Amino acid sequence: MGSYGGVTRVGGIGDAAVRAAQSARSVEEFFEAVKRVVRPVLRFDVCACVTVDPQTLMNTGGDYRDGLPSAMMPRMLDIEYREGDANDLADLAARPTPVGLLSRETRGNLDLSPRYRDIMRPLGFRDELRVVLRDRHGAWGALVMGRTVDAPPFGFPELAVAASLVQPLGSALRRLHLTRLAEGNASGAAPGLVLLDGGHQVVHATPTVAMWFDELAHTDGVPHVDRGLPPALYAVAAAVQAAGAAASHTSWMHSRRHGRVRLHAWRLEDPTATSARTAVVVERAGPAEHIALIVAAYGLTPRERDITALVLRGRSTADISHSTGLSPHTVQDHLKAVFDKTGVRSRRDLVATFFARHYLPDMTPA
């Protein structure tokens, strides 16, 4: 790989992207800095920057300003979470190198991909490159890039650069998650309810919905799909409509105004009651959602997570030993690992740190 902006090696591009994004205080700023560095190298025509839940890989927001037209998002998410397609984020996230090119995933027959047939080809795009941003603690986001038919195809140099972005940007995005949890402000808004029909068009939305979605636009009091309803909402709604899916699903997203927001979707089974097919409740995320992201972002193992939760509840070493079936010595070993990862020295420090970083801000008026 040749030199770009002082970068003379492939891995250095990822390092340069991280340096550019270090001052970001929001996901939008983070991805804007990343795109500024990698655009001259990867030369994409569109780029959707996605954040995902490390536990479920569900869409939780991101930056779509350089992505596909908003009118295409419902169909995109329908394919992503209901129908399935090649170059799937969940499949890529499980690979040693989570980078995928749609043309390769379909072995050159792009017409096998509904995403290509229904979205990319009508818009004049030739291929799609996906990069999952992942570190050893989980997947935190993805870059979804496309080139038009007028541009040269993605090649080995671009794939090598994409692979170099995976770990450094994954770690940087994980740290940003922690920062956002620590700085999030409380919201006094009442929960909102959105009813969607089979095509994910809004049938009804309570007035409180507008308070949760900063970018939500309204016409005659009804929010419209093509006017900014967040992709994360469509993702959770599509999840309950997928074949064989559970009747309900819970996810979350980041709101610039309200911080972490819980999304809970239900599949409506009685078609005679209403034209709506899916109901989604939007409300402030509680401690359960916070702790799930916190332990993932700190890189705690499942056993360390369980012990941390017991410590936060005030349980003694003897109590934890009895509950988990571990010896007190093993419990202390796990606690030492937790202290090392979270940067504290004692149980008291651990409880105080979690409270100060991740709960006290939610108790402080915005």
Rank of each mutant, 00 (worst) to 15 (best):
A24C: 12
R9Y: 06
R115H: 01
G188H: 03
L57C: 13
R256G: 13
D127L: 10
F213I: 12
Q22F: 01
V46D: 04
R175G: 12
T219D: 07
R260K: 11
G141H: 05
V202C: 07
R277W: 00
T353P: 04
L57T: 05
V10K: 00
E105I: 04
E183Y: 04
V37C: 07
T250G: 09
E83L: 14
P191H: 02
I294S: 13
L77A: 06
H264Q: 12
G188R: 05
V131A: 10
S26F: 13
A337P: 06
V281R: 03
T317I: 15
V344M: 10
Y359V: 12
T51C: 14
E32C: 08
G11V: 03
R136F: 08
S251E: 05
P287H: 05
A86G: 03
R257K: 13
P96G: 12
R39T: 08
D340G: 08
A21I: 04
H224T: 11
A217C: 09
P168D: 11
L89G: 03
T219Q: 09
D118M: 01
R357Y: 07
R315Y: 12
R347K: 14
A21F: 01
A24K: 08
I320R: 02
L133I: 07
V149R: 13
V131P: 10
T206R: 11
I291P: 04
T324R: 10
E29Y: 08
S23W: 00
V46N: 09
K341V: 11
T179F: 01
R104A: 09
D349A: 15
R284V: 01
M58K: 02
L181Q: 03
A210D: 02
L123D: 01
A48R: 04
L178T: 08
D135R: 10
L268H: 02
H334V: 07
R117I: 00
A279Y: 00
L312G: 02
M363P: 04
G108P: 11
R256F: 09
V282F: 05
A210W: 00
K35M: 13
P157A: 13
R19Q: 14
T250C: 06
G184M: 14
M145Q: 11
V7A: 10
R104Q: 12
G343H: 12
V331S: 07
